[in-house]
Amino acid sequence: MREIASRMVTETVSTLLQDGCYHLADDVITALRQAYEREESPAARNVLVQLLENAEAADRDEIPLCQDTGMAVVFLELGQDLHLIGGDLYEAIQEGVRRAYAQGYLRKSVVVKPFSARVNTRDNTPAVIHTTIVPGDKLKITALSKGFGSENMSRLAMLTPAAGRQGVIDFVVKCVDEAGANPCPPVIVGVGIGGTAEKCMLLAKQALLRRVGDPHPDSEIAELEAAILNRVNDLGIGAMGYGGRITALAVHVEVFPTHIAALPVAVNLQCHSVRHREATL
């Protein structure tokens, strides 16, 4: 059985989180440039130029793209034939978060008790961890720094099956419309459809991990993504909400089978500061 040391996990998580916070990924830069070329609104174009300049400054000086360096969300795909040695896997991840936020001069934004003692944990732990066991002997780690300007605009609807495809589109468009300027548009719209309530929300978050603008491999879902994107960009919200043609850079949909009584739809928005990285050990 293959073995890896849990300190490798710590080092990897730390590196992934720091890289994500300083260096905007190529797919996002390309999407922002394309948005600039297509945008008609002078105010929105001005915003898009500054976002590209911001990405350059962050990359050059290793200063975070955004001061909200988020809550860390870590996705694990753990091969069932892999053996972790030298310590607890989840603690290794938390230590990676601690290290990233201390060594990387990232903002510690996590409070202990959400509705009472909102005291900062001072090391940005705990991370939210989602684990899947898969065949093989590898460990894939995806680390996301999720800012809460966009996270706060998340929504879940348990639609009736009668609502159908149109109901799904209308709900997602309504969420983006109501969010307006708040989630720092242009956004990536993550949509989950199906499963149970919590599965649906997780799908919406996982949808944000796809390369920006890559359509879903299933053509029916890809067509739904395109239809929602058109409707969202007709809202006119534009970059920073100053009015414009590009409100979303992409809509990504993930789907899972559901119950005969249900049509769950979840929306998880991602601001333009898309910060996720992955590595396989």
Partner: peptide
């Protein structure tokens, strides 16, 4: 309004 997510630029 300042530009959300332009923290590196605004810092300067």
């Amino acid at each position: 309004g300042a530009i959300g997510g332009a923290g590196a630029l605004l810092s300067s």
